[in-house]
């Protein structure tokens, strides 16, 4: 079994109103010196194989087909 973590983030230049709202709320809590806040998503998946290369290829296909919308989002994959 291979554990995969997919992190999906908005591409640069894509407006992130939720990140902006979080940024404002952090400021209101007294946290100073915060740059931009960008919100993303994390998916943890279990892949039933011992073959890392195969798992990575499969997770990449999942990202392209469903987990990320590549018009607006980037993704990274880490395997453990």
């Amino acid at each position: 079994m291979i554990n995969a973590r997919v992190t999906v983030t908005l591409k640069n230049g894509v407006l992130d109103p939720q990140g902006k709202a979080i940024e404002g709320a952090l400021g209101a809590l007294g946290f100073d010196g915060i740059g931009h806040v960008r919100q993303g998503k994390v998916f943890d998946l279990q892949i039933e194989t011992a073959d890392k290369a195969k798992a990575e290829a499969e997770v990449k296909a999942m990202c392209e087909k469903l987990l990320a919308n590549t018009v607006i989002e980037n993704y990274t994959i880490s395997l453990a």
């Binding site: 407006l15 109103p17 939720q18 709202a21 919308n69 607006i72």
Partner: peptide
């Protein structure tokens, strides 16, 4: 339709949230 790739672009959360 945009998610299916039949139309270009994407629809995101309203700017006002």
């Amino acid at each position: 339709l945009v998610e299916a790739g039949l139309l270009p672009g994407a629809l995101m959360r309203n700017a006002s949230l």
